[in-house]
Design a protein around this nucleic acid. Structure first.
Length: 541
RNA sequence: GCGCCUCUAGCUCAACUGGAUAGAGUGUCAGACUACGAAUCUGGAGGUUACGAGUUCGAUUCUUGUGAGGCGCGCCA
């Protein structure tokens, strides 16, 4: 039984001895922020004062007097009525052995038997990923890693919009660039894609098949450029994502979603919620959460983006997930209630789909907002920015803040390879531990860590033991930034420990053996934590 | 005009979901290496949590009003 559960039980016994029966759901046991407040604290007395009809401090006194001190060194009442628990120190050391035994599995939550589908990035295959996608990719991926580590069954999914208008524009743009490169007259469509990127793809196609496509009929040629364009763009996107440490289990294609009459069947299914507006068909989403009904079939008979997307989400639900999560840019927030309403028409609850909104990022360099790429004049690509500031810094900076917070990305800070940079601060702690362990490798470890009792060692032990809770909390709150907070504190404690305690001391091998074990455990946890946000844990820097 | 998000130290953000003296980084000031990595550590200064009202033992957190900023409000995707 972990310490928190045990404390709760002791408190429950104390209350019941005092003659009061209540449930304990409201009572929180927390790690004390301040050492003077002991190791753990509870607000039980404040929560229970109305049952006792007494002031919080008196209630705390009653609980204290009825408490069995099992594993507890002492109990104090403080402030408005907090009860602080000071644990016996020897209750902390065993965590070192546990970490060393479990290695990269330390912190993993038990299997929740709960299936979550996380859809993120889902950028249209019509050009390079740009910085706008970067934060969503980083947070989506980190979230998946955290959920999965916490014990959820996670599927990472990317939805490819390969059936809409923008793909036809891609095909036309490609065709034009193809002609241009072959020295033929060409005209770029007005709403087409004018970037370098499309030109490069045209080049690849010429290298591949030369001018053979000219012999196709115009219709067939467009179809050809459409398919090749999607394939090549997607290949590039996957490559960029891989370099960014992001991968997907499932790529769902809109074309496939639309096949087998699925859209038509959906129209039939929703018939009760559909009405005509002229030649268009409108879905009555206001029947549920939306503030406005939405067109799903245009006057010309084409479907709007919304309709196949409903089919797609219903498709995902039908695959047996307990929870869908969409990671979307904040500019899509108007879309949330629309989709939830559609799912409710299928009998799902409004919580079946959860949307994580990613707020905008501004890249700041030398005090100025960076808007366009110097090279092409277009939006800055993910690739460019990774080359400039490095993947680790990108991943850490994006994971560092709550998704809902607007974020200014300070490129000068991310570029700085110094103590100022939080990524290096954490990685340095890891490298430092590696270095110490390397130098002390001839000393046999004492994995009971029995000689670790200095303040900095105790603080570190407590923090290490808390890792599994942080993972769970971070997963539950969909908050990768809680992991980076943890990492930062861990680095701080490691550096503090290093300063206070000399690890390798040939004249005091017993203490060294314990401290080396603590180093190894700390290094392991640092690595596990960094891995959750896709940041490397280097042995040397 | 309506809706969503945001407002905390000079700057970028936390605060364990309603708890103790509101904390980190950065910047600034002052210190610490002839021993394991100074990419580190120790200390100081810096706050009416945008502003007002309410809810209660207790509010940065919840409700509400005002102000400021961002984003949406298509038969675009």
């Amino acid at each position: 039984m972990d310490i928190i559960t045990k404390l709760k039980q002791l408190i429950r016994e104390a209350i019941s001895k005092a003659g009061i029966e209540v449930n304990l759901d409201e009572i929180i046991i927390e790690h004390s922020k301040d050492l003077a407040h002991g190791d753990y604290a509870t607000n039980a007395a404040m929560k229970l004062c109305r049952y006792f009809h007494k002031a919080p401090k008196e209630v705390a006194e009653i609980i204290k007097n009825n408490l069995t001190l099992d594993g507890i060194d002492k109990v104090e009442i403080a402030g408005p009525g907090f009860i602080n628990f000071f644990m016996k120190n020897d209750s902390l050391q065993p965590i070192v052995k546990k970490i060393i035994d479990e290695k990269d599995q330390f912190g993993r939550g038990e299997d929740k038997n709960f299936k979550i589908n996380v859809e993120f990035v889902s950028a249209n295959p019509t050009g390079d990923l740009h910085v706008g996608h970067a934060r969503g990719a980083a947070i989506g991926d980190s979230l998946c890693r955290i959920l999965s580590f916490a014990g959820y069954d996670v599927t990472r999914e990317y939805y490819i919009n390969d059936a809409g208008n923008q793909i036809n524009n891609l095909a036309k743009s490609l065709e034009a660039r193809y002609r241009e490169l072959l020295g033929l007259p060409f005209s770029l469509p007005e709403d087409g894609y004018h970037g370098e990127d499309v030109k490069n793809i045209a080049k690849i196609i010429i290298d591949d098949i030369g001018d053979k496509a000219l012999s196709f009929s115009y219709e067939k040629r467009l179809q050809f450029f459409k398919e090749e364009g999607i394939r090549l763009e997607l290949e590039k996107i996957k490559k960029d994502l891989k370099a960014f440490g992001v991968y997907f289990d499932v790529f769902s294609s809109e074309i496939k979603i639309r096949s087998n009459q699925a859209v038509e069947n959906e129209l039939d299914y929703l018939a009760n919620y559909i009405y005509d507006d002229g030649d268009a068909k409108v879905l009555k989403t206001t029947a549920f959460l939306d503030d406005k009904d939405r067109v799903i079939v245009k006057s010309n008979g084409d479907y709007t983006y919304f309709l196949p997307d409903i089919v797609y989400h219903v498709n995902k639900m039908s695959r047996g997930y307990d929870q869908l999560i969409d990671v979307l840019g904040a500019d899509h927030h108007g879309y949330i209630n629309r989709m939830k309403s559609a799912l409710m028409m299928h009998g799902y609850t409004k919580d079946a789909l959860e949307v994580e909104l990613i707020q905008m990022v501004r890249f700041i360099k030398d005090g100025q907002e960076l808007k366009a790429s110097k090279r092409s004049g277009d939006a800055i690509t993910l690739r460019e920015i990774c080359e400039e500031v490095g993947v680790d810094a990108m991943r850490y900076f994006f994971a560092m803040r709550a998704a809902s917070a607007h974020l200014d990305f300070d490129m000068n800070l991310a570029l700085e390879q110094s103590s100022n940079n939080p990524v290096y601060y954490a990685q340095y702690a890891h490298a430092r531990l590696s270095s110490i362990l390397e130098q002390g490798k001839d000393i046999p470890l004492d994995i009971s860590a029995s000689n670790c009792s200095k303040n900095s060692e105790i603080a570190l032990l407590k923090h290490l033991a808390n890792f599994p809770n942080v993972v769970l909390d971070s997963a539950k709150e969909r908050a990768p930034y809680k992991i980076t907070n943890y990492i930062h504190e861990l680095a701080e404690l490691v550096h503090g420990f290093y300063t206070e305690c000399r690890v390798i001391d040939r004249d005091n091998i017993n203490v060294s053996a314990s401290r080396l074990a603590l180093c190894l455990a700390s290094k392991q946890v640092m690595k596990n934590a960094l891995n959750l946000i896709g940041v490397k844990a280097p042995e040397h820097m």
